[in-house]
């Protein structure tokens, strides 16, 4: 899913779920979410992946294969072909004789770390920029909105490639690059929402009571943004994970020794005929992770939007 698609979906979020006596809107939303089977399965899948990522060192200890350790004598044939799944290597080895299973688990750490942190950064930054632009309006909005347009119109993959090539590959840089290209989508949604709230009575009331602009923004506007922002953030996570995998696939991600799904996929290009596992396993993990986050995001959107229920 592209960034713009994600933002388009999020824009459908209404201001706030309507209150029902005795139950808060969040409680209602949660109840609706738990009734959504796809979202619940996705949540389960995400939990399993997180658990596997957390337990990566345990599996490394069980197999005796560190994530960066190469075992050319046992993991490769004499001609240098990776061995397939077997007792020594649960999912087979990669092209240097490293344990594919262990590397995929450690790769999950990188994917989740990059996905979550870059989304968090993009969300924080996007909310602030979008809210300031929407709330202050005038020339502030003009400048910020144009900046967002510029960021959104960047050929982001090309710019990312150049940035990484010039500044050198590292996890923090990758997170910053991804966050930079994701925040604009978030900011645009937040700006739109803020503009609609700005004219609402409760804001007028706050203003007439003498609340400062920052106070109004953070106390009165922010709570109303939580729903759309949550949905969009959930949908940004898989986008970021795929972005990371893309950069790593192109050899522009992290240190080549660091296990990353994209890098493993890139390694498989020369070997998929003889070692299909090298292609299949990281691809399936990438697919499962992004699909789970996307379905969860859809579920959250539906849960927060009772009027959209008929759509499912």
């Amino acid at each position: 899913m592209s960034l713009t698609e994600a933002s388009a979906e999020a824009e459908h979020i209404p201001e706030q779920a309507e209150a029902v006596r005795g139950k808060g809107p969040w409680q209602l939303a949660w109840e609706r979410l738990t009734r959504d089977r796809a979202a619940m399965v996705s949540l389960g899948v995400i939990a399993v992946i997180v658990l596997l990522a957390l337990l990566a060192p345990v599996f490394a200890a069980i197999t005796g294969h560190g994530p960066q350790e190469a075992f050319p004598a046992t993991g490769l044939t004499p001609e240098g072909l990776p061995v397939g799944p077997g007792s020594g290597f649960w999912l087979g080895a990669d092209s240097l004789g490293r344990d594919l299973f262990v590397r995929i688990l450690y790769g999950a750490r990188i994917s989740l770390l990059v996905g979550l942190l870059s989304t968090l950064l993009a969300t924080l930054f996007g909310v602030v920029v979008g809210m300031v632009a929407g709330f202050y309006g005038g020339w502030v909005d003009g400048v910020l909105a144009r900046v967002l347009d510029v960021v959104l119109s960047f050929p982001y993959l090309l710019v990312a490639i150049v940035l990484v090539a010039v500044l050198g590959a590292s996890v923090p840089l990758m997170i910053l690059v991804i966050a930079f290209f994701s925040f604009a989508a978030m900011a645009r949604v937040v700006r739109g929402q803020t503009i609609t709230y700005k004219e609402r009575e409760f804001i007028e009331a706050a203003r007439s009571m003498g609340a400062s602009k920052p106070r109004t923004m953070f106390v009165d506007v922010v709570p109303n943004l939580i729903a759309p922002v949550t949905v969009l953030a959930t949908l940004l996570i898989p986008t970021s994970i795929v972005f990371e995998a893309t950069l790593s696939f192109l050899g522009l991600g992290v240190d080549p020794r660091t296990p990353s799904w994209g890098a493993i996929l890139s390694d498989s290009v020369d070997y998929y005929r003889v070692a299909p596992g090298l292609l299949i396993f990281p691809a399936v993990m990438l697919l499962l992770t992004t699909l789970a986050f996307n379905l969860l995001g859809d579920g959250i959107r539906d849960a927060l939007d009772p009027r959209g229920e008929g759509g499912r």
Partner: peptide
Amino acid sequence: RTTGNHPKVAQAIAADLTKCGIATTLIA
């Protein structure tokens, strides 16, 4: 070099040096 098999060679050598207690900073 990021081309061809050079990244693999670099990683293999780096892994051997690690076993010998030598750290490496790989520069693409």
